[in-house]
C-alpha cells in the first residue's frame, strides 16, 4: 500500500491539518508520500520533508496551481493517482472542493470526512449532522478519502527526512480563474486549531455586542472566535466563523458557547471538544446537555464578570 497525502498550505506555511491527515494515513499503514501543489511553495515542501513517517515529498509548482483551483488540482492528483492505493486530504474547504472531482475522474467513490480507520478499506464517518456514525467498506482500487482533522491527533512537525521529487505541474485547464480573495485579517489563533474557542450565538443580539463582549474574553484566553449560523446569518461575524454541520468542525480543549441554544447542527461542529462551557439564560437550552459546565444567566452580566475575573 502506498498513500498520497495532499498537503494543506497557503504557499507559505504548511497547515497543521496536514499532520492530522498523516495520522490517519499512519492508521491505514503503508508507505506515505506527501504532495505539495501550489506556486512558490518550495518552503512548504521543505517543511513537509521533516514530517515523521513520510518517505517522499512530491512538489508541483505552477501559476495554475497557485490558488489550488479544483479543476487544476484534480487533474494533477488524477495523473499521480495510479501510483497509489489511497489518496487522503483534509476535509477542509479546499479538500472538499477538489477531492470529489478526483474520485469521479478515477471512477471511484469518495469517502468523506472520516473519523476512524477501521481497516485499509473500511472507514467510519459521521452522517446526519453527526447523530449517527456509518461504517463503510470500499471495493474501489483507489480510495479517495477526506479526513476530519479533529478526529486524528496531529503527528509532530519533525522527525522525518523524506526525499524530494519535482513533478510536472500540468497545463492550466483554463476553466476557472481566481479574481478576488478577501481573507479576514485576524491576529487570533486559527479557529480549527485553537486550544480555546469562544463562540457566540443569536443571544449576543448585534455585531457590536458580539465584539464588545466576546473579544475581550477571547483576548484573555488567547482564544479563536466562532459563531452559530444564526450569528453569521444575522451579520454579527463573517461566514467563516460558523461552527457546525455545514461550517467548521472544531475540537479545542475548551469551547465556550455564549448565547447559543445548541441546535443539532451546531453541536455537530463542537461536541468533540474536550471541555464545553455554556452560558445561556434558558435553563432548558439543549446546549446544557453537552456542556461540562453550564451557567444559567444573562450573558450581558456573566461574560464581563468572567472576563474581569480571568
Amino acid at each position: 500500500m502506498t498513500i498520497l497525502v495532499v498537503a494543506e498550505h497557503d504557499n507559505q506555511h504548511l497547515k497543521a491539518a496536514t499532520r492530522h491527515v498523516l495520522a490517519a494515513a499512519e492508521a491505514i499503514g503503508g508507505e506515505i508520500h506527501v504532495l505539495v501543489a501550489g506556486q512558490h511553495c518550495a518552503g512548504v515542501a521543505e517543511a513537509a520533508r521533516a514530517l515523521p513517517g513520510v518517505s517522499c515529498v512530491r512538489l508541483a509548482q505552477s501559476d495554475a496551481l497557485e490558488s489550488a483551483g479544483a479543476e487544476n488540482m484534480a487533474a494533477l492528483v488524477v495523473r499521480l493517482a495510479p501510483d497509489y492505493t489511497h489518496l487522503l486530504t483534509a476535509a477542509s474547504a479546499s479538500g472538499k472542493n477538489w477531492m470529489p472531482r478526483v474520485a469521479a475522474l478515477l471512477d471511484v467513490a469518495q469517502i468523506s470526512d472520516i473519523v476512524r480507520v477501521d481497516a485499509p478499506d473500511t472507514f467510519t464517518r459521521p452522517i446526519y449532522a453527526g447523530s449517527v456514525w456509518a461504517t463503510v467498506r470500499s471495493a474501489d482500487a483507489i480510495k479517495a478519502v477526506t479526513v476530519r482533522t479533529t478526529a486524528f491527533e496531529a503527528l509532530p512537525e519533525t522527525g522525518g527526512a523524506a526525499c524530494l521529487e519535482t513533478v510536472e505541474a500540468g497545463v492550466d485547464t483554463g476553466l476557472s480563474r481566481r479574481t478576488g480573495l478577501a481573507l479576514n485579517a485576524s491576529s487570533r489563533p486559527e479557529l480549527e486549531t485553537a486550544r480555546v474557542v469562544v463562540s457566540g450565538g443569536r443571544g449576543l443580539g448585534s455585531a457590536e455586542r458580539f465584539s464588545a463582549l466576546l473579544e475581550p474574553l477571547a483576548d484573555k484566553l488567547n482564544a479563536a472566535l466562532g459563531a452559530s449560523r444564526a450569528a453569521v446569518d444575522s451579520g454579527y461575524v463573517p461566514n467563516d466563523y460558523q461552527v457546525g454541520q455545514t461550517g467548521k468542525i472544531v475540537a479545542p480543549d475548551l469551547y465556550i458557547a455564549v448565547g447559543i441554544s445548541g441546535a443539532i447542527q451546531h453541536l455537530a461542529g463542537m461536541k468533540a471538544s474536550r471541555v464545553i462551557v455554556a452560558i445561556n439564560k434558558d435553563p432548558d437550552a439543549p446546549i446544557f446537555a453537552v456542556a461540562d459546565y453550564g451557567l444559567v444567566g444573562d450573558l450581558n452580566q456573566v461574560v464581563p464578570a468572567l472576563t474581569a475575573a480571568l
Partner: peptide, 23 residues
C-alpha cells in the same frame, strides 16, 4: 461502490453540571 457495514450512535458525551456563578 461503498458497502454500509453498520450505523451506530456516536460515542456519547457525559452530561456535566450547572455551576452557580462565575467564581
Amino acid at each position: 461502490r461503498l458497502t454500509l457495514l453498520k450505523v451506530a450512535e456516536p460515542p456519547a458525551r457525559q452530561g456535566g453540571i450547572k455551576v452557580d456563578d462565575v467564581a
